[in-house]
């Protein structure tokens, strides 16, 4: 909107590379979420163990993907898109940094739902949406195409802290339907 179609193209080019990596946590959580929900209702210790293992695995995978994007961005972008997309390199590096909190948040947001804390999750989502809008408003005019990528990184970090805080709250067990 503020920077025109070229900026959108530079951002989208980087995003198209990062987006498919989210298949990994989505697939893992498809398997873990039911097991975690079941364990939570039967054996709290087992649920905690499963939660830690899953989040640790995702942190390791996310850290690896982040590192790969950081190191490969300077040659990957020109190789895939050509020299015209040089502006996408810093965007890809920043979006690559978001992979670690995104992977962790995949697990943490699912734990919140399993614990019946979806109202808290809605509150966190509203806060992150508002922050994202605010950060974009401030950062895009100053930093250009890097602005929204930095905003995503900040917002995902805020969500990570929010989820960690929410998971420390006691379960209210309002979930029995």
């Amino acid at each position: 909107m503020w920077r025109g179609a070229e900026a959108v193209a530079h951002y989208s080019a980087a995003w198209r590379l990062v987006e498919p990596t989210q298949l990994l946590p989505a697939s893992l959580l498809a398997a873990v979420f039911p097991a975690f929900s079941l364990a939570l209702s039967q054996d709290g210790t087992r649920a905690r163990q499963l939660g830690w293992q899953t989040s640790l695995l995702l942190a390791l995978a996310g850290g690896t993907v982040t590192l790969l994007f950081w190191l490969s961005a300077p040659w990957l972008v020109p190789w895939l898109y050509g020299a015209d997309f040089a502006a996408s390199v810093p965007v890809l590096r920043l979006l690559g940094l978001t992979v670690l909190p995104v992977y962790l948040n995949y697990s943490l947001t699912h734990y919140l739902v399993a614990r019946g804390q979806q109202r808290l999750l809605t509150g966190l989502t509203a806060v992150t949406l508002s922050l994202h809008a605010l950060f974009c408003w401030i950062l895009i005019p100053r930093l250009g195409v890097v602005g929204p990528a930095l905003s995503v990184l900040l917002v995902e970090s805020v969500l990570l802290l929010g989820c960690l805080w929410a998971l420390r709250q006691p379960i209210l067990w309002e979930t029995a339907v």
Binding site: Q22, P25, A26, V102, N105, Y106, T109, H110, V113, L121, T122, L124, T125, T128, L129, H132, V152, V155, E156, L159
Partner: peptide, 8 residues
């Protein structure tokens, strides 16, 4: 979809 909860 830019908000994080879309992943759910």
């Amino acid at each position: 979809s830019l908000t994080p909860a879309w992943r759910l």
